[in-house]
Design a protein around this nucleic acid. Structure first.
Lengths: 171, 171
DNA sequence: ATAGGATAGTTCGAATTCGAACCAGCCGCA
DNA sequence: TGCGGCTGGTTCGAATTCGAACTATCCTAT
């Protein structure tokens, strides 16, 4: 069997190792963050992400759809989580003047407070686990990689979550 | 407000961007793989991962716990998935001679077949999206990074999933 | 030998996710 | 003005996940 034959079907061993490692690491990272947040602050990583994104936004508010795009989950999941956060008083829904269908989700005072409470814990984790390991050059390199991956993803699939059209195989 | 004050609580903007981007990219990657696999081969990424890990293993078999460690999910989730795959005839459970508590999960013929069927689709996706973007140097660099992250994770939390002990804050 | 503690897997209930179906409200064009 | 098609959000059911509790087995030290 020719090498090319093998590699067209499987990955070259070393490359495969990188990919495997990548999956393993990202999963573990995600897991630890989730746990830490859950144990020490009683919120999920998704919830935390929502709060962060809101805090980072103009006016501390975002549209549901934009939120869904940002944190990469189905719109229905955002609805679910926003309901939850809203029950906790951490966010509020507001009608949208321009578009009557739209909803603005806005971070409340207590929401911001809660975020500021949780942030140090999680950020220190990110620093220790993720960032301290890399120097400036590596960071730049990583950023470039991420950019490329992101572009590839863009090109590959523009459809947001929860919007699959069955017919559209790639050109 | 001093810069150090800010950064002890929040991340420096550029670093923060890298982290955010990292999350975004990994989520999207995961999502696309999952979809692709689901649509074209009717299996989840987790299920696919299980099949791959088994195929890669000595004797095409693994213990439940090792499987859980490898794919980074709770043991109960593995039980669930293995049941499912077993119903589909893709894997089999075998008693373990050495340890009567133990279970070997073994990839069946049809299981391997199914994997070989699904692999090209998903591997080409990985190549296009993830690997084609990087040259050898970058790959090596990435691998080094992953290694460091992995070590950090090891050091930070040895407990496997589904085994939290509430008392054990880090030393 | 055997008691006490660790380990392997399963079962269970609660939480969360997805995608499909659905209902408005918006927009372009006749 | 009014008809299609698109877009923003919600609701729904099915699938999957987690962690805790549990059972059975193994191991170590006395």
């Amino acid at each position: 069997m020719a090498a090319g034959d093998f590699e067209s079907r499987w990955l070259a061993p070393d490359v495969n190792a990188v990919w495997t490692r990548f999956l393993h690491v990202t999963h573990r990272l995600e897991l630890q963050i989730d746990r830490r947040l859950q144990e020490q602050h009683g919120i999920t990583h998704t919830q935390y992400e929502i709060l962060v994104r809101l805090a980072d936004s103009e006016d501390r508010a975002m549209r549901m759809s934009d939120l869904a795009d940002r944190i990469v989950t189905a719109k229905s999941a955002v609805t679910y989580q926003v309901n939850k956060l809203s029950d906790l008083g951490l966010v509020e829904r507001h009608k949208c003047d321009r578009d009557n269908r739209g909803v603005w989700v806005k971070l409340t005072g207590p929401g911001l407070e809660r975020l500021e409470q949780a942030a140090p814990c999680i950020l220190s984790l990110v620093r220790e686990l993720f960032l301290d390991a890399i120097n400036c050059d590596q960071a730049a390199e990583l950023d470039k990689l991420l950019g490329t991956w992101s572009d590839n993803l863009d090109e590959h699939d523009r459809a947001p979550i929860g919007h699959r059209h069955e017919g559209d195989a790639e050109a």
